[in-house]
């Protein structure tokens, strides 16, 4: 469109997540691919539900590999976050991408969470919830140390705004 240069656009949020998040996403992707291959193996090899020729197997394996290789790097390029004095802004996803903005004045809770995999990789997820069930803002794959600082920071800023957040 012609007005694209004049009309304001959303810039990308300032910060990337931790590079180690790629390792986490790769592990998840490998796990998912393994599940698909095992189920397929059972269906074809054990229960004989249908037949899969050699090239079919090749295609499935290539697709799984492509997924495990591209998804983490695309996610790493997309996943970004930023906190200003007034708002938190994130960008996430890979095929379907989402940007979320929530004002700090409306923040209700700030959650810090770490799964087993995340702990092994020293990663953490910070979730900021508002009064709307549709609006939680999640920042996945943060460095654990950064995440802790972010939680403190967000809590302090949200408190500074006060109000009942609805």
């Amino acid at each position: 469109m012609d007005d694209a240069r004049v009309a304001p656009r959303l810039r990308v949020p300032a910060n990337r997540v931790s590079p180690r998040a790629r390792v986490g996403w790769t592990a998840v992707a490998v796990g998912q691919a393994a599940v698909v291959l095992i189920v397929l193996g059972l269906l074809v090899g054990v229960w004989n539900v249908f037949d899969l020729p050699g090239w079919g197997w090749l295609a499935v394996v290539i697709a799984a590999l492509a997924y495990a290789v591209t998804m983490p790097s695309v996610r790493y390029a997309v996943h970004r976050w930023e906190v200003t004095a007034d708002a938190v802004f994130t960008q996430s996803g890979w095929l379907t991408q989402e940007r979320r903005v929530a004002p700090l004045a409306r923040v209700q809770t700030v959650d810090f969470e770490q799964g087993a995999l995340a702990r092994a990789l020293r990663l953490a997820t910070v979730t900021v919830t508002t009064a709307s069930a549709a609006g939680p803002v999640r920042i996945e794959g943060l460095d654990r140390y950064d995440a802790e600082n972010l939680v403190d920071d967000l809590t302090a800023r949200a408190n500074a705004h006060g109000g009942d957040a609805t």
Partner: peptide, 9 residues
Amino acid sequence: IGWNLTQTW
């Protein structure tokens, strides 16, 4: 109290 902008491929 906020915006979610979603885009599929």
